[in-house]
Write a protein that binds this DNA or RNA. Sequence first.
DNA 1: AAACTTAGTTAATAATCATTAGAATGTTGG
DNA 2: CCAACATTCTAATGATTATTAACTAAGTTT
Lengths: 400, 400
Amino acid sequence: MTRKPVLLGRPPLLRKTNAELLLRLLRESGPCSKADLVRASGLSAPSVTNVVATLISTGLVETVGEGDSTGGRPPDILRFKAEHGCVAGVEITRDALRFLLTDLNGRELSQSESHIEKSKSTPLQICQQIAKHLWKLLRQKGLLQKQLLRVTVGVPAIVNVDEGTVLAFTALREWNRVPLSLLLTRQLKCPVLIDNDTNLAAQGEFYCGAARRESDFVFITIGEGVGAGVFLNGRIYRGSQWSAGEIGYLRVPQISREHPSIHKYGKLETALSASGILKSWRASKQATTGPRALRVSDVWDQAASGNAVARRLLRQRATLLADVILDLALILNPNLILLGGEVGNHPALLRELNALLAGSEFAVSRVALGALGVPAALWGAISISLEPTVLRLLHAHRRG
Amino acid sequence: MTRKPVLLGRPPLLRKTNAELLLRLLRESGPCSKADLVRASGLSAPSVTNVVATLISTGLVETVGEGDSTGGRPPDILRFKAEHGCVAGVEITRDALRFLLTDLNGRELSQSESHIEKSKSTPLQICQQIAKHLWKLLRQKGLLQKQLLRVTVGVPAIVNVDEGTVLAFTALREWNRVPLSLLLTRQLKCPVLIDNDTNLAAQGEFYCGAARRESDFVFITIGEGVGAGVFLNGRIYRGSQWSAGEIGYLRVPQISREHPSIHKYGKLETALSASGILKSWRASKQATTGPRALRVSDVWDQAASGNAVARRLLRQRATLLADVILDLALILNPNLILLGGEVGNHPALLRELNALLAGSEFAVSRVALGALGVPAALWGAISISLEPTVLRLLHAHRRG
DNA sequence: AAACTTAGTTAATAATCATTAGAATGTTGG
DNA sequence: CCAACATTCTAATGATTATTAACTAAGTTT
């Protein structure tokens, strides 16, 4: 047995704390000198020298030569070695896999997509496809397999994040209770985390999208289904059975009551769905031979340019959505509510919503559009991968 | 200027950490010996000796003689000196002030109530009445004024907890933007925190009521108004403008739309209110001369014993409330939803709700009744007062 | 009464950070 | 061009706090 890794109030706690602090400063403010770290951290110069020496010994930090003098000895510039390894974000959708590979600074190395063949869509086959694709991406970028340090996977389902199991996949029954995280960890030989795709999209908008520095917000995505990523106190809130934000069965005015069920869409979800909107549009346009609309955004564009049928469709959906947003605002009082998905992410809908919501004296949340679009969940996956990966490297090396 | 109190990764951080750890252990597990603390904390015996010496020097800990031998030298028993000071919880309602005084272990010293005279109900007069009453209670218990170390006040309003100001008092316009915390701090000469009463009630149920060890739950109170205390990740969630849980304007089926307004009740609130229920009851019972009902609980009792009119009233309200609960469960997925208030806290209502909610495949929260009744908010006030008070004492003494 | 058990203290050692002094290596100004 | 100065970084020393090992204290068990 190794020695017990307790680290309560013993002296090594100081080193750990300060090493994490300096590494964080280096990652956040980019390359700088020891003297800069002294000023930024508040630690003494000898301590910084000492801690940096251990950081360099882990391989996470390196010197990159002299910087410019500012009237004295020129500094040795330090930098976080972001290319030491890489992390990946993966998103599983009904018919495709999406991939994003970044270095340890979250800088994009490659982004790609891969179609899922209907005949090869069992959980195990999907895992194999993911592994194969990731190995290919690594090869293309000249990286070793063991440099892939962590993978986070988004799934359109209720997910037990602790156990790494998929609990309920609205459309795909065979995915029930699949230990996806375990399967992938075995194949990829690195830690794999899985999470709900909408949760990850919210995290992505927080990381580099429209919700930067917002500690409390809700990301609503509307496409075929409806879901919300609830982000509170600076992190994803998942609920006690992992189903927070599953708003497809919400009881709002004009929606008849039913009980939440795992394998079908809720009434609200159906009412707001893309296919429902397109169906209504096509039905009413077969009479008046107007312009074609293949996607919901086309319908919303038509509404914005004055088409009466499209305007009615938009108004109906916005009215429903306004009720949902007000309920969220009353219960959670977030600063911001973001709209995403092919139905949700449109300026015309936003305008309509703002008109419907104006007039509240409290429970006022700013409503806005997501900034990242489709890759939002991938960026969220990267975002929650980076911090634990770096800390793990730091402490693994300090031990061994 | 005093020296800067930075305490990042410097050696004193260890002492601080360990002192807090041992004090917490001592408070949670009651009187024990140094050897017990060694076993419980994982620290070495000399360290415990050392830290305990500093704890004793602050006056927060004392020795109380020898314990029983278990086959060797008998231990010196240590104990947290809970009578070193006291904290108070206060609740302001429309027509009364409620008080709870406890020692630093949260053990009740006295509980009392004081009527608010209509002619003396300005914020300043209320503050004076609170101070006067608290001084009286202290005198009765033989405590000095300076032994009152912290007071937390619950207010039936939206409260800015950071600034200590009352933002919106549904019924009382004169309370708008009152810096209640500042006023009381001046009078009481100790830190005063104010918070929403329903938030505090939720905290109370967590501390010593029906939600012990539940890290995620919602406490719904229904009386004249309707409100929810949202408790997530082990603490009150207040939202970004302090109005989380203000569900009186929630848009659920059967409730017509309106915008949240500060100085009147919402439609849902009105539909569920005690006075509305009693009014309907009296209207329908003037024909059939049945038993009298003075409180809503009497009506619910009648419903439980088969009275048709009462059953209809109960069914109506339960239907509304079931929608609210399902919406909360979908958005937050808490483990538990508690009912409180004179309308909410009744077994007949609970039965009806459970019948209406049965059948969901996910978003299932256990629904139960609050255990503390009227003093819930007072216990919540005590609960959030204790920890900061003890830590403040510990570190104040270690400095001086 | 001797052996053992448990509680607690003292003395020596280790980890870590801060302070002080000084070395390394530039720029600035006469 | 060189002396004075500025900035970066390191080496030596001392302070705080922890641990380990040895020891004292005071009981129970055989």
